[in-house]
Design a protein around this nucleic acid. Structure first.
Lengths: 339, 339
DNA sequence: CTGAAAGCGCTTACAG
DNA sequence: CTGAAAGCGCTTACAG
């Protein structure tokens, strides 16, 4: 195995100078830099990460905590995250957590065991961050939930404008003539994105002069097809008058379409469905799913950019809402307005 | 940060003895072991992995190379793999490769850059292994393709019995009265699992006395809904007489069902579809997808078990075929046998 | 701009 | 069974 020592010997410079070149320190002569780099090239030298990190007292990895495992939205973001991070030479440690797990407590545990140099949270409950995040000192970013209100010194957040998106869904359904609209998914903990979406739904319903009773028109559930299916069954059983359903996630919507079908309801003929996320399955489902698309590429880019700049330059945390896109497809029917 | 030195000081033993206790060496007195462990417990000490690996000249991670990114089957296995590996205290490095990428070349590159202590391949082309794998010296396992024929000293493999499964699909369709059966997916490189499945299809068709012409009845494609959709369009355009289609992956099947629908064909009324994999979406699609289920839990368990035992005890490589399960659902119609 | 040296936290022969 | 010591491959003050 070739080491920095070999490079020093062959290039005729000392260990220190080689190390400086490798780390792009400015105070090295161009000549030394050129000669050393040439040797590095020739030998295909790669520094030993263990030695480097031991010395620098850091751990190499960036830890990504994924909340919920069934959601292709996160799988999509995760994959983009990994590609970007690898391209920057960063190692990634991934852990899948239950949708209801305390991701911050888990992160704390990881700090002891693996000492990651940064955290990327895919999904998260703000309440957990409020309680325990103070103990985490490495730069972190939360994706798909807005943490600006917490004003933590080392936590950035990037998320779709959930309120605006939820509103757009209701506006769209209302414009299509729907008045009895149900909502599927999320849990009622106040600090979850689903809660934010639900509030926006209520506001939009009120604005359109439509009645909305949480108890009868909303059915909470986890983000999976199975849970979406079961929740839709409960909702449709309880509120058969609904002409449309807004599911807080595409997987929930897909489960709901199946449930409607099993109850003998055609989608969109008897029940219109709008999803949230824009996962690919929605393009191929029968019917194709009308949904709100989250810009996963943008989310991943911003996360990596922000994390790395804070790792390297101690930049301040950022919070940004990114635009969504309403994708009208086949799962919503326009009702002729009743007089 | 507490180190092994602190433990030594507090327990009154030397560095060496502490290290031996930590690594479960036999030649330590029970008394020393008990006292040291007590201190370790109390301080919640975790050894510094960098120092350990630097000294031991290994890299901590196990690299998982995932071929193809669109396939929920791999996402499913990957998640289980990570859970098992983390439970064993093993770090995992994941890389997503294009479906047609050379995973072995990539692994070689990784050896230089990250020096993983083992490889887990999710999907793989035997031809690439034949050509380049000899240069890889760490224990590895290939999942979802059988590498026994290669007889490599450090490569295990675990896979579904693809030939038997493909045969079962054809038997099932033939029993339902289908005679004109198309096949969707895979590429024709001989060393891919899709090729193995296709050959089994041909054998089964012959056994049932059914005609099968690769050129007209098989349409290759990558494993994604988009590609399945496009391939189905081509196949159905060219061979409108087909009454059934066997897709070599569920994502392909789902795309194909959509394509059938877009051509005005009902599934299963006008076209029956059988998938392969058993991903969850198939349980909620309309119609529900009849498919061959791969036992992802078993695959993941075997992979981890085999890899770790070879890491720790230099056990020999293993090759094992694991059983599949035919899941009859709604996408196949039984034809009344024509006289 | 460059070199010599100390030290990061661990493991492992080598003595005893 | 235990301790003292060397060394894994790097980085970074400290001199010069």
């Amino acid at each position: 195995m070739t080491t920095i020592k070999d490079i020093a010997r062959i290039s005729g410079y000392s260990l220190g100078t080689v190390s400086r070149v490798l780390n792009n320190h400015p105070d090295v002569s161009d000549k030394a830099r050129a000669q050393i780099l040439a040797v590095v090239q020739e030998l295909g030298f790669e520094p030993n990460a263990n030695a480097k990190h031991l010395k620098m007292q850091t751990f190499s990895d960036i830890a990504v905590l994924v909340k919920g495992t069934q959601n292709p939205l996160f799988a999509d973001i995760l994959e983009k995250l990994q590609a970007l991070l690898h391209a920057q030479g960063e190692g990634v440690f991934v852990a899948y957590l239950d949708e209801d797990a305390n991701e911050v407590k888990y992160a704390l545990e990881l700090c002891r065991i693996r000492r990651p140099k940064g955290f990327l949270f895919l999904g998260g409950d703000l309440e957990f961050f409020r309680q325990d995040f103070a103990a985490i000192t490495v730069p972190s970013v939360l994706l798909t939930n807005d943490a600006s209100a917490l004003a933590l010194p080392n936590l950035s957040s990037f998320s779709t404008d959930d309120a605006a998106a939820a509103q757009a869904a209701i506006d769209y359904l209302a414009a299509a003539g729907h008045r009895a609209i149900g909502v599927l998914g999320g849990n009622l903990a106040q600090e979850q994105i689903s809660y934010r979406r639900l509030q926006a739904v209520e506001a939009a319903m009120a604005r359109h002069g439509l009645p909305f009773s949480r108890d009868v028109q909303h059915e909470p559930c986890r983000y999976s097809m199975q849970d979406g299916y079961a929740a839709a069954q409960r909702l449709l059983e309880r509120a058969p008058h609904l002409s449309a359903v807004f599911a807080l996630g595409d997987v929930i919507a897909l489960g709901a379409m199946r449930a409607a079908r099993d109850r003998g309801l055609g989608v969109p003929a008897d029940l219109s469905v709008v999803g949230f996320d824009g996962i690919v399955s929605g393009q191929f489902s029968i019917p194709r799913l009308t949904t709100l698309r989250q810009d996963t590429a943008r989310l991943a880019e911003l996360a990596v950019e922000s994390l790395l700049s804070r790792l390297h330059y101690a930049a301040p945390p950022r919070h940004q809402l990114i635009p969504f896109q309403l994708l009208p497809r086949e799962s919503v029917q326009s009702l002729s307005p009743t007089p």
